[in-house]
Computed example of a mutant assay.
Amino acid sequence: MATGDLMARARSGDGEAFRELTEPYRRELQVHCYRMLGSFQDAEDVFQNTLLAAWQGFAGFEGRASLRTWLYRIATNRCLNARRSAGRRQAKEWDVPNVEPPEPTRLGEVVWLEPIPDALLEGVIDAPLGPEARYEQRESISLAFVTALQILPPRQLAVLILRDVLGFHANEVADMLDSSVESVKGALKRARAGLQHRRPTSDDREQSPASDLLSEDAIVAAFVRAWECADVDALVALLTDDVFISMPPMPFEYQGRDVVARFCIGILRAGRRFDLVPTRANGQPAFGAYLRGPNGISHGTGLYVLTLTGDRICAMTRFENSVLPSFGLPRSLPIR
């Protein structure tokens, strides 16, 4: 059916026509909300609110901007409202039984961070970029990048994503934010400086992936063997000197091979044995971690996401078991 006919039907209240018009943009809008908010669950709520607002306001869509731009305007402003009004998830105390953690290197700020399943990134991270984009789509969904974004003030965050990640022109962004082009340019300059401050050279290195898929498979297989066998020496051999571990919503962060090794020893040498189930998050290898119990059942304890560089692991992020269902992973498994 011609787009004009669909538009007319949607304006008259035809829900199926509205769904057909917006379907090509739904996945990328969902990912946009995630970049803006850093929390998968918060992003899902705002994404659904965006679709509802677009549906309710579609009769007023005059077509002066493209449908895609109009939808991004709604989504961005809903995300900004959420950033301003919602109380962020609070930091949690250490809750791993029978394990005493080492003294953390520091306490993280972005305790609300959650991973996004790669299944929702299909068709998004390989989509064509706008002419103003500065970041590769795969980099712009990595955990390190999304974490750094969360520290920016809300409007700076919105401008940087719209301009440098999605490639919208400055005048388009100004219209989306009811602002001026000069204000957008100023916010972008400050956002770039703030992002660079939060992502020093070592973090830039963390963005470098394994050299090829074969290398990634080999690193991942070695990690699984070491973790499931509680082979700390083999595990430590896979880590870079400045390897980094974080575990939102617990604020504990560890940097450096020695302290990370002590952390892993505490986890793996406390009589705890795990089964790892592979998945992918944020364009990175990930694993559901299942603690073997005495009754023949392994219980899900969390999700680990790895960041690779060359032939080593340079970062590992551990999330709570509440994220497992989003990845199609069960809460428990029979012991293999």
Rank of each mutant, 00 (worst) to 15 (best):
G4D: 14
E16L: 08
R19V: 08
E20P: 00
T22F: 07
Y25M: 04
Q30S: 15
L37V: 06
Q41N: 01
D45S: 15
N49I: 13
Q56C: 07
G57P: 01
A59T: 06
F61R: 03
E62Y: 02
R68E: 12
R68P: 00
R73A: 12
I74P: 05
A82K: 06
Q90K: 13
D95K: 14
V99K: 12
P102W: 13
E103R: 15
D118H: 03
D118I: 03
V124L: 04
I125T: 11
A127S: 13
P131Q: 08
A133T: 03
R134A: 14
I141H: 01
A144C: 09
L152T: 03
P154T: 06
L157V: 00
I161T: 10
E172M: 13
L177A: 11
L177Y: 08
S179K: 08
S179Q: 08
V181H: 07
E182C: 06
V184E: 05
L188D: 12
K189A: 11
R190N: 13
R190H: 09
G194E: 06
L195G: 05
L195H: 12
P200E: 08
S202H: 08
Q207K: 12
S208L: 15
L213Y: 07
L213C: 05
L214N: 10
S215G: 02
E216Q: 14
A218Y: 00
A221G: 03
V224M: 06
R225M: 09
C229I: 10
A230F: 13
V232K: 10
A234Q: 09
L239D: 00
T240F: 02
D241L: 09
D242V: 04
F244E: 08
M247R: 09
M247T: 01
E253L: 02
V259P: 02
V260Y: 03
A261M: 14
F263Y: 15
L268K: 01
R272L: 06
T279R: 03
A281R: 00
A286Y: 05
A286P: 00
L291Q: 03
P294K: 11
G300E: 03
G302I: 07
V305T: 11
V305D: 01
L308Q: 03
R312E: 05
I313E: 00
A315R: 10
A315N: 02
M316K: 06
T317Q: 08
V323G: 04
V323H: 06
P330L: 14
